[in-house]
Computed example of a mutant assay.
Amino acid sequence: MTAQHIPVLSLIGLQRTFHQGSREIHVLAGASVDVWPGQCVALVGPSGAGKSTLLHIAGLLETPDAGHVLVAGRDCTTLDDEGRTRVRRSEMGFIYQFHQLLPEFSALENVAIPQMILGLSRREGEERARRLLTSLGLGERLDHRPAQLSGGEQQRTAICRALANRPRLILADEPTGNLDPRTSELVFHELIGLFRSEGVAALIATHNLELARRMDRVVVLDNGLLVEISPHAVGR
């Protein structure tokens, strides 16, 4: 079976319960979804529904109480810390609401460093970083540190960093949630365009229903389960 016929990410029967005193909160109660190569999937649901928990489990940052996480057909649920780290570095990219760039390094260095950690030379890492940043209009800002960049420029840099190691999958948690509406719209448009050009799959948690409608698929986290709906039905 070719890679195009295997989901990049399969979440199977995920369960996660938190304890608050004597109270049990069943955040995930059998959540399942497949994300296929090249797809952008919106993850929506009310605040507190468990979207961030789901993304943490999908990203092998947290372990479910039950269920399985498959990345490119490989069951990663029982991997040790070192194994999960290897999968994250080679297969995944992460984008958060707050950019989490390294403040002492330039935009170019922030995008090059993950590649150098994976074993590329500084020259190779900086060459790809320059291409990615330039593609998002940051060719004149390569040597600027995060504090010298606008909010939109910081988030564009974070997007490039997430794509630096050519991941199969991007996991994004409210990637434009910290931006004003106009900048959010622009960054989202660039985000999806870059995902398409790089051929990666993405699972993107968002409260912005207008943005969710423009993705390939939409899944709603409802009472611990994932329910797929048509993008055209979002918010109606």
Rank of each mutant, 00 (worst) to 15 (best):
H19D: 10
H26W: 01
L120P: 01
V41L: 14
N223L: 13
N110C: 02
A3T: 13
L61W: 06
L79I: 05
M1R: 07
L142A: 13
S47K: 06
I229F: 14
L226Q: 13
L142P: 14
T2A: 13
H189E: 15
I229M: 15
P37K: 01
V69H: 08
F94P: 08
L169W: 06
R23C: 12
I170D: 00
S121H: 02
A201Y: 05
E210H: 10
P175R: 00
L163Y: 04
A147Y: 05
D143S: 15
L221Y: 09
H26L: 12
D81Q: 07
F94L: 06
M1E: 08
V41E: 08
I159D: 03
G152Y: 01
L138F: 06
G235Q: 04
G151R: 04
G73R: 01
L138N: 09
L132E: 11
A49H: 09
L54N: 04
S230C: 10
L226Y: 14
L118H: 01
V234Q: 05
L9R: 02
Q15S: 09
L142R: 12
Q20Y: 10
H26Q: 15
V218G: 01
V69E: 09
A66N: 12
Q154C: 14
A201N: 07
M92C: 11
Q154H: 05
N178Q: 13
V35K: 03
C160L: 05
I159M: 09
V234I: 06
L61R: 01
E190D: 15
A29Q: 14
D80P: 06
G137A: 10
A164N: 07
E24L: 11
A112C: 03
H99C: 04
R123A: 15
E62T: 05
L221C: 07
R16K: 15
E126W: 00
E126Y: 02
M92L: 12
L79W: 07
R217I: 09
T157W: 01
P114D: 03
S106I: 07
H5F: 08
S106K: 02
L101D: 05
R89L: 13
D173I: 03
A205F: 10
Q148T: 00
V218F: 08
L209F: 12
P103S: 13
S47C: 10
G119H: 10
G50I: 10
K51S: 11
H5P: 04
R217P: 11
S52K: 03
D80L: 02
A162T: 01
H207P: 13
L225W: 11
Q39S: 06
E109G: 00
L9I: 04
G38Y: 05
A31K: 11
P7V: 02
S47G: 11
L101E: 03
F195S: 01
Q154T: 03
L120K: 09
E127A: 14
H68K: 14
Q20K: 10
G199E: 12
L9Y: 04
I12W: 06
A162P: 07
V234M: 10
K51Q: 11
P175Q: 01
L179Q: 04
P231H: 05
G67L: 06
D65S: 06
L133E: 13
